[in-house]
């Protein structure tokens, strides 16, 4: 059964695209057929992070408008043959994504993939609501600072209102992914504590990804961080998060702290 995941946040620059690529590659490494879909029409980035920018011929807008068939637009990863990219268009504007078009594309993707991961644009407008529309699972990417947390809260409200699942009276499964977490700054009290973020958002935590130059290094060589160096700290965090999304129970650690402390945090569930 195909599962649709939306990676969303409200706020820009928090790590959605990085996380989409990293989780996509981590799930694909489990030998499950995975496609990452770029919904950020006009500001596409996922192709760069995946290292596929020079292989883009057709994009999602071409498929929606009938200029190309879906298989023509899908790009298979060179390193992992279970991983695919459906790129966004860089030249069209956001209005070229139509609700019916997106619905058709998602229905077709569901026939061929185990995981469909949608990289949402920032904001709460059309692009973001279309990206979340068909989601079964939402990964809410949040940085430990107030504006990011508030925007995430806003997005959680939309997930409960504007998705197909919500309209059917069902729930989108929500996971909090805390990214760009800096243990040194947390120590100094310059960042919101993990506990506070969890208390405010009251959704279960799926992972804490540390702030790390490994992320920049990976994106410079055009590889998801989980493929570039799968022993690096952010890669380990993303691998664990992917396993939790797939339903496994994996103990959680706060970067920079002793193991096990977070057992109680991960155990906390609400909403």
């Amino acid at each position: 059964m195909a599962k649709v995941i939306v990676v969303t946040s409200g706020k820009g620059g928090v790590g959605k695209t990085t996380s989409t690529a990293a989780l996509g590659a981590a799930l694909a490494q489990r030998n499950e057929k995975t496609v990452v879909v770029d919904f950020d029409v006009g500001l596409r980035n996922l192709d760069l992070v995946m290292g596929a920018e020079r292989r883009v011929v057709y994009d999602i807008v071409n498929v929606i408008q009938g200029d190309a068939k879906l298989p023509q637009a899908l790009i298979r990863d060179k390193r992992l043959d279970t991983l695919f990219l459906l790129p966004a268009s860089q030249t069209r504007d956001k209005d070229s994504l139509t609700a019916e078009g997106v619905e058709r594309v998602m229905a077709e993707l569901k026939k061929h993939f185990d995981w469909i991961i949608c990289d949402s644009p920032a904001g709460i407008e059309r692009g973001a609501t279309l990206a979340m529309r068909h989601a079964d699972i939402a990964v809410i990417v949040t940085n430990p600072e107030v504006s990011s947390v508030r925007d995430s809260d806003r997005i959680i409200g939309l997930l409960d209102a504007k998705t197909e699942r919500a309209e059917r009276g069902e729930r989108v499964e929500k996971h909090l992914l805390l990214t760009r977490y800096d243990p040194a700054r947390a120590e100094r009290g310059d960042m919101l504590k993990v506990d506070d973020v969890l208390e405010i958002l009251s959704i279960p935590l799926v992972g804490i990804v540390p702030e790390s130059t490994d992320v920049l290094r990976a994106s410079n060589i055009g590889a998801p961080v989980t493929l570039a160096d799968s022993r690096s700290a952010p890669a380990l965090a993303y691998h664990d998060a992917a396993r939790r999304i797939a339903g496994e129970t994996v103990p959680m650690t706060i970067p920079g702290e002793k193991r096990g402390l977070l057992g109680k945090l991960f155990g906390r569930r609400a909403a």
């Binding site: 809260d153 409200g157 409960d160 009251s202 909403a271």
Partner: peptide, 8 residues
């Protein structure tokens, strides 16, 4: 019965 989210 649930949290009231930002913007609501």
């Amino acid at each position: 019965r649930e949290p009231v989210r930002s913007g609501q």
